[in-house]
Amino acid sequence: MKPKVAFFDFAGCEGDELQVANLEEELLTLLEQVEIVSFREVMKEHSDNYDIAFIEGSCTRLQDEDRLKEIRKNAKIVVAIGACATIGGINSLKNYQDLDDVRRTVYGDKAKLFDTYAARPIDAVIPVDAYVHGCPINREEFLHVVKSLLLGKKPDIPNYPVCVECKKNENICAFERGEFCVGPVTRAGCNSCCVNEGTKCWGCRGLVDNPNENSQKEILIKYGLTVDDAIKKFRLYFGWQERKR
């Protein structure tokens, strides 16, 4: 029997599900291996009978926690997809501001009707078995994770920084182009795609297990960033992880 797969979205932009929906040819091959029973992005039907749950978006409200726990109960394997779900993502930026302010900016007068709390990754609420990092996720890696799960193995997600891939791709380092990059502390796996395109790494895949943050900040400052800006660089994506550390 093919494993049943369901997709869920929380606070995110659905950019990751879009990546999956756009797999095209590969999606067809994939459908020979799995059956999709719930996927708002492409179908109306929904079922609570699934083996693998892919969850996009971060948890930003207390009441989302129940829905997440329900998913955890139904699924054998829970996979967080996209930066919002894996590391809290850009949503965590707001954790550094006053939450009431955030509510007012977002919802204006209706602010009182919506409650919100510190944005957090899925694994801050329920145990997560696998991660597809990135903002948005990379299709190759999504497929790698699916293949691994089908083979019964733990997906191979690097615990080394983006610089590794950057070197293999023979890129000119962003710092040498006058840009500021957080690749040295960011988990690789995207094949350093942003640097390949001539920009820099913003850190969307989150920190490696043991980042040398002091050294990274020192480098940012050495190359001309102010201390404040260096910290901001870190918060864009590392907000939740930084607080936890």
Binding site: K147, V164, N212, S215
Partner: peptide
Amino acid sequence: KCLACGSCVLVCPTCYCFDVKDDPHLS
């Protein structure tokens, strides 16, 4: 200050360590 970024070894003309992995087709 080491970042464990591996740059120093990856660009070295005499470094030769490698990893081996299986890469299955989607089928």
